[in-house]
Design a protein around this nucleic acid. Structure first.
Lengths: 340, 340
DNA sequence: ATTGGAGATGAAAGCACTTACAATATTACC
DNA sequence: GGTAATATTGTAAGTGCTTTCATCTCCAAT
């Protein structure tokens, strides 16, 4: 922690700097005797090698770039937390970069991280993959420099690894379950058409189609997924109902939207779940805030993160790792739906 | 973005590397003509200087260490978000380190950040300052290396800067307001005795004392402040009520605890606010999840963060800056209290 | 006693920048 | 046109590590 250099240590220990460097890096080409001698000096003076010089020599400072649209988003914040913990446990540090949701900002953020010489970039969230391939160029470019890890999105390119949850199946099952509970007019309430957004929607559609219940009027998009807008979400449902849209169930693409539906039901004096059953997505802490509490789909974020880090560590040590991994989610039943 | 060095650029531009370095660092000792010439080459080849070599030469990589107990905590996550944005706007990047709540982990986390050669460390949250001075040694040590910024805590030491909200006054006013609304048996529900925890409590005590209403039995501590425990929080209140404790108001030290009180009231069939008025703290998104919505104290986090960064930037450029700044909070009245 | 080879060590050349200082070019002024 | 002052540029010495390669030590095998 002092400002000594490797030269000071080598002098005090009576060895060359090469030897000090070797014990610093755990090389086994050092005799036990001199290793101990050097370590003693290092501990005595609380010497810490200069990280920049180390970085220059090794071309790495053991840092990983974490990118997400908004680190204050409930779900993303949890992911950041898990990932940071896991990385540090593996000897890596995290440099965080909130990119926002537009492509240009993402490209800029990516440049920042790459120019910081991170060992890898982890893109947290399904909004980093675009329809058009040219819009994903910034990812391909980054992957030419360092491995790129995607959480909740998948993209097939060299040096890009994807960890996703099976959103399609989760939504398919949630929808099927609601149909089986006797509800046939189910609204799908969503905001994003991101990678996972599309798969969720497809899960709903497939389940509805299989029962001959799909009506295009029951797909309702809201412009935002932000918590601040839950009242506006509620209003939108209210207006739709006033205009004659009839629905006794809402499947929402995330918990904020589901909470909007709860707000709507409460304002309209509807009983939950008798008059309106509601399912959310992400199983965030929002689920336990409202009354009744919210049924939601848990996509096993911690497991996804663990697997992501395992994969990344494998890649960084030069191992062949799977390019895409899929995990199943789970429906957590609470008060806003009928128990099976 | 390529792997060129300053030598390549100097060669292609027909100047020395010193000149390239000068334009890279915005030195004004370069003629416009050569500056343009060099910039053209840099842009043409998309050259980015090697961050490690730069760090070694400048002894800085323009990164700031962000430390918080748990980045997935609602309030801390918001702080991280604001700070990261502001830092990046000022040309700095953030390396994130979630320290947990125990001292030893914090010391370790601090070592990690310092050894990464950050330009400053920002401690986010009131739990970084301890009663005993020896427990704050890790901060003093860190401050010997780089400026240390405290958000929501204050500590007087060289090179340590504190940005706090006036928790005492906020709590004093919230309590006074509740008393004036006609409630005299007000429970104080808290978990932490951190820097701001103590000040909040003092605000409540002072207000109650001034009205001769303070009863020590009305101070109720809960072991955790975590959202997962809201049901347990509710149970604790329920048990206390069953044992004969009477209260018609709850002032909670944060929104999670307040939500616990809401859960209790709902389970016990109490009307809010008629039978039980509730005030939370932090004005987090939890406030709008429950019904009725939660009155809470907003401590102007964004303002605090802005001021913190302003102060930090001043310090880093060698200016004299105030060691401690205090901002007022504001009570946001919602449905869990009587409107004034 | 001799040789070969493994294991331990050191000298020195990177790594890609910054910057003090010296050298040169340019301008200003008489 | 000459000189001093100033603006611009280059040389070279850091910055603190890693690592290759050569050297040296030591011991087992012959």
């Amino acid at each position: 922690m002092t400002n000594m250099t490797i030269y000071d240590i080598s002098e005090k220990a009576g060895v060359s700097i090469a030897t000090v460097s070797r014990v610093l890096n755990g090389s086994n080409n050092v005799s036990e005797k001199t290793k101990k001698k050097v370590l003693d000096v290092i501990n005595q003076y609380e010497y810490t090698p200069n990280a920049f010089a180390r970085g220059l020599g090794l071309n790495s400072m053991n840092t990983i770039g974490l990118m997400c649209a908004d680190s204050s988003d409930l779900y993303l914040a949890k992911a950041i937390y898990y990932i940071e913990q896991l990385l540090r446990a593996n000897g890596y540090d995290s440099i965080l970069c909130c990119s926002g949701y537009d492509l240009e900002s993402k490209e800029k953020a990516m440049d920042v991280l790459i120019s910081k010489k991170v060992d890898s970039v982890i893109l947290i969230g399904s909004n980093y993959i675009y329809e058009k391939d040219e819009d994903n160029k910034y990812i391909v470019d980054a992957a030419a420099q360092v491995p790129v890890m995607l959480l909740n999105a998948a993209f097939d390119a060299p040096n890009v690894y994807s960890i996703v949850s099976d959103d399609f199946t989760s939504m398919y099952e949630a929808t099927t379950q609601m149909i089986h509970s006797g509800i046939s007019d189910i609204l799908y309430f969503y905001n994003s058409t991101s990678y996972s957004g599309k798969r969720k929607l497809a899960g709903y559609r497939t389940a509805m189609e299989e029962h001959g219940l799909l009506k295009s009027g029951n797909l309702m998009q809201f412009y935002s997924g932000s918590h601040e807008d839950i009242h506006a979400m509620g209003s939108q449902l209210e207006k739709a109902a006033e205009k004659g849209l009839s629905f006794h169930g809402v499947i929402a693409a995330d918990d904020n939207l589901a909470l909007g539906a709860v707000k709507y039901a409460q304002n309209a004096g509807l009983r939950i779940p008798e008059d309106l059953a509601i399912v959310g997505y992400n199983n965030s802490l929002l689920t336990t805030c409202c009354t009744p509490e919210l049924t939601s789909i848990d996509n096993k974020l911690e497991t996804l993160c663990q697997h992501l880090i395992t994969t990344l560590m494998g890649v960084l040590t030069g191992n062949e790792m799977p390019k895409k991994t899929i995990f199943s989610g789970e429906i957590i039943s609470r008060g806003t739906t009928f128990s099976k």
